[in-house]
Design a protein around this nucleic acid. Structure first.
Lengths: 215, 215, 215, 215
DNA sequence: TATGAATGAGCCTTCATTCAT
DNA sequence: TATGAATGAAGGCTCATTCAT
């Protein structure tokens, strides 16, 4: 049960500290890294910038993380796990699968739409090609994927969603859609509010998934 | 007419050579870079690797490109422009907008599904946060966006697509969907053929866009 | 009072460290650079040569200096400021302006005549055309100019020097003269002792400046 | 007799072409180099800049000069030899040695004061530490030195100049003085006319050299 | 003779990581 | 545990020079 929240243990990982004092510094570094990566971009962000933002010495970073890549991965884990937890909670009260998708999409877009730094990190900085990073990122990402796909299958079992849809493709449609919506927003120079797009997104997703007279 | 296919001229750009002998070397470098970036990842790919693959000296790269970033951008421009050209041609014969979307999606997934190196480049290596890269990439990307969005609007005017759909969001749905499908495939360790997913993708996209009794 | 001895702060300058341990390493690099520049010539002296002579890693240089140019400028500042300080002290005890000129010229020629490496640096290596270098060098150089010109004006007020002389030109005559004397010596292949030239230099400078029956 | 005007032949020197057509291109390159070196500074001036200014291909430079250093040296030789020739002619008509010094100083300062590009080249760009350059520059420089020193000795024999003066030091005083005057002018940001300084320079040099009641 | 594309050695600089304190 | 000075490998890029045409 807890495993999915635990830090994915690959080579050299320092793991999340249990000691609350350490945990606090760990989190401070994670927050600093989130900001720093968003501000400079992963590859143009020296570890020293993170250290400075976290008010620690450069070397201290390496007491909590094996290397720079692990910092990136940890930020992702913290943020996505938290996002998943929230969505899991919120969807408990939903009456049908479509409502869950609605909550998921709305929450996701809202959360990032209200936090450009986080959005920039997740949509842009995270997309690094290093195998280690991909590897570290995979588990929480898969959880999110499974969550969405689960909703789809659920909807099909409920008869709310078209049973002929390939659930995996549906997941990619849903994820790819709000991923694209948020990415465009983050990269756009024009200042607009993504949250206003939610209804349009939901309208089209509903068309794609829900059967006539469903929901 | 031709302008949209020309190299996007930003600061320091060397432009595409007209002299056929130079053009050949230019293209050789572009191909070498495509391979090298796919193999090592943009940031872990020294210019010398590209040079070696292109059978030229390191310095020669800089006779054709202002810097490493411009090499990346140029690969993108060559590939995406060519892709767009192909789709534009193919869709000329289509009878309605949905057919155009079908052709677009099918062609795109097929083209990348048959060329993992290119797919890896476009889906992974290209996602760099450097402002210069984003800037250089924007124009061809926008052309692609406009092409898709144009199909959607067309379909709505034809009455084939739901008029209440936000065309811009529809574009993001379509693009985000096959983007996600291809990305997952490239990153997946499992060997499978993306092309087999095309029908499922089209099925769900059709649901999202086409009105009852349409097409 | 002290400000004129402080490091001239231009863009990116790291300044002289206060911490004595750092100051020691800073000075070690300055000495190493003096030697290395003299030996190879500024443009033919890789930073790595300086590092080796200073027994530090290449990167360490950049903890103390913003770039190679700043190293050159810093050597100059250290050496010229020290030279000026010495002359200022020595001339305090002089009874008239001519004596001060005498002390200045004698000290200057002696100091460099005893230190070919320093002489080579100041007379040859320093003459770089880079704007940054010129800019960094200007302040200590101006101090030296002002010192000399001050002596001339003093002598004119004392009635020891010809009042019709343009003090600025006199400064150029004095500086230009021993500059040329030392430069020729440094560049000469023949081994001779510049210090033996001092009296001849003073004889002619005295003629140029001092009025009949003066001093 | 002619030797002093001939190109100093060191290793690899291509010599001055006799064929007038070649000589014209040779001179074009020399003039272009003078400009280019003045504009960018020797070390920051790629050979290609010279070629462009001379309207020739990069490779053509190497048909006339062994390497970049030789270009610099050749510019110096052309310019200084021409300067010496002029002074030699002008001083033929002088009645005494002081007048010759006067003509020399006045002509030198005027020639450079009217040609900032040349002045920049001779005073700044030329001062390179490369042994080859120093070596190539030596002969014309020595001619100039000997010319000046000859005037001094002449003046002493005429009884116009103080016989107790060391003629070599006097040469250094004279040369160092106008060298400094011109250098300061070239480097100065303030726009002023050096030529106005000539009288002040001559006044002080006269004091230094001429005996009471002399000239 | 002239060209200018091609070469590739070389260097400044950055920065992830270590380790003595 | 925390520090931050030190390290040194690595890479983008320049440019003097060559040589096939």
């Amino acid at each position: 049960m807890k495993t999915s929240l635990q830090k994915y243990d690959h080579l050299g990982s320092k793991g999340i500290p249990d000691d609350p004092r350490k945990r606090a510094k760990y989190l401070a570094i994670v927050e600093a890294a989130l900001e720093a990566f968003s501000e400079y971009g992963y590859h143009d962000c020296p570890v020293s910038k993170i250290a400075r933002k976290a008010n620690v010495a450069d070397g201290t970073i390496y007491l909590y993380f094996a290397n720079k890549e692990e910092v990136l991965v940890s930020v992702f884990q913290e943020k996505v796990n938290s996002l998943i937890r929230d969505v899991e909670k919120l969807t408990l009260e939903c009456s049908d699968a479509w409502e869950k998708i609605e909550v998921l999409v709305r929450y996701h877009i809202t959360a990032l739409g209200d936090n450009r730094v986080l959005a920039n990190f997740l949509q842009i900085q995270l997309r690094q090609s290093s195998p280690n990073i991909r590897h570290g990122i995979a588990p929480p990402l898969k959880r999110l994927y499974r969550l969405i796909e689960g909703f789809v299958v659920e909807g099909q079992q409920e008869g709310v969603f078209d049973g002929k849809i390939n659930a995996n493709i549906a997941r990619k449609l849903i994820f790819g859609c709000f991923d694209e919506v948020i990415s465009c927003w983050v990269l756009s120079r024009r200042e607009y509010d993504v949250k206003e797009k939610v209804d349009d997104v939901l309208y089209i997703l509903r068309r794609a998934l829900v059967v006539e007279g469903g929901a």
